[in-house]
């Protein structure tokens, strides 16, 4: 099973983060929520690994399971 990467793995992270914020500019709350949901689904498909995604869902929870955080 592939482990979810939780150490630094993204080059140009400031650029991507800024682009994410910009994508939400001018959207109301419902539109922002919808954008986020679409983005999650697109990324899920791109990652394409159910094991990694389940770990990511656990890691994102309000009370992440430590054992999952390799």
């Amino acid at each position: 099973m592939t482990d979810l990467i939780l150490s630094v793995n993204l080059a140009r992270s400031d650029d991507v983060y800024a682009r994410l914020l910009a994508a939400h500019d001018g959207l109301d709350e419902a539109e922002s929520q919808a954008l986020n949901a679409r983005l999650i689904l697109i990324l899920m498909n791109h990652i394409g690994d159910a094991d990694v995604l389940m770990q990511a869902i656990d890691a994102a929870g309000p009370d992440p399971v430590d054992a999952e955080l390799a």
Binding site: Q33, A37, R38, I40, L41, I42, N45
Partner: peptide
């Protein structure tokens, strides 16, 4: 409902969402 609607939004744009 948010994710259900997101799937329906995406299915009109991209094939990958169809199985969802």
């Amino acid at each position: 409902a948010l994710f259900r609607d997101a799937v329906l939004d995406l299915v009109e744009r991209y094939d990958f969402a169809r199985p969802m």
